[in-house]
C-alpha cells in the first residue's frame, strides 16, 4: 500500500508529512492555526505590547521622580515661595538633579504622549482627525522634549 494515494479533495498538503501513513490511515489534516510557510508574516510588530509595558515601567519610576519633585518644589523649605532663578541654579549645579530632571522630562513626556495617543485612538473616529491629532501630538512632544533637554544641558547660572 503506497503512502501517497489520490489527494483527497478539500484538503491541502500538510507540511512535512504525507497524507496517509502507518500511523495515520485517515488523511492527515493540518492543525488549525498552525504556523506554516504559507502563513503570512505578521506586518505588525510588538509595538503595542512594548508601549503597554513602557507605561507600567515608566509609571513606577515616575512615581518616585515626580512625587520627589513635588516634595522639593511645593512642600519642603517654604513650599513654592522659595522657587526662583537662584533656586534653579543651585539645584542644577549638581549632576544628580540634572539627571533627575532629565529622566523625569523624558519619561513623563513619553508616558503622557503614549497616554494621549491611546485617548485619541479611543475617541477620534474619523481617520483624518486621528491623523492630524496624532501629528500635532507627536510634533508637540518632540519639540518639548528637545527644548527641555536643551535647557537642562545649556543652563548657564551666569547668564547675566
Amino acid at each position: 500500500m503506497s503512502t501517497t494515494e489520490t489527494t483527497p479533495s478539500g484538503i491541502g498538503p500538510v507540511e512535512g508529512a504525507p497524507f496517509y501513513g502507518v500511523d495515520n490511515p485517515a488523511p492527515l489534516i493540518e492543525a488549525p492555526r498552525r504556523r506554516t510557510k504559507k502563513t503570512p508574516r505578521s506586518t505588525r510588530g510588538n509595538f503595542e505590547m512594548i508601549a503597554w509595558l513602557f507605561m507600567r515601567l515608566s509609571g513606577v519610576v515616575l512615581v518616585v521622580l515626580v512625587l520627589g519633585h513635588l516634595l522639593i518644589q511645593l512642600v519642603l523649605d517654604g513650599g513654592v515661595s522659595k522657587v526662583g532663578f537662584a533656586f534653579v541654579a543651585g539645584r542644577w549645579a549638581s549632576p544628580w538633579w540634572q539627571v533627575w530632571d532629565l529622566a523625569m522630562l523624558w519619561l513623563a513626556m513619553l508616558h503622557g504622549a503614549n497616554g494621549l495617543r491611546t485617548v485619541i485612538n479611543d475617541y477620534a473616529e474619523r481617520p483624518a482627525s486621528r491623523m492630524w491629532l496624532k501629528a500635532l501630538l507627536y510634533t508637540a512632544t518632540v519639540w518639548t522634549i528637545l527644548l527641555g533637554t536643551l535647557v537642562i544641558f545649556t543652563f548657564d547660572p551666569n547668564i547675566r
Binding site: F85, L105, F155, D156
Partner: peptide, 26 residues
C-alpha cells in the same frame, strides 16, 4: 492623565525661561 500632560507642556515652557533671563523666569 490628560490634565497632567497639558500642565507638563506649560511647565517645560516656563522652565525654559531660565535660558532667557533670570528676571523673566522670576
Amino acid at each position: 492623565g490628560v490634565l497632567i500632560f497639558f500642565f507638563l507642556f506649560v511647565h517645560v515652557l516656563d522652565t525654559a525661561l531660565v535660558r532667557v533671563s533670570p528676571e523673566d523666569y522670576d
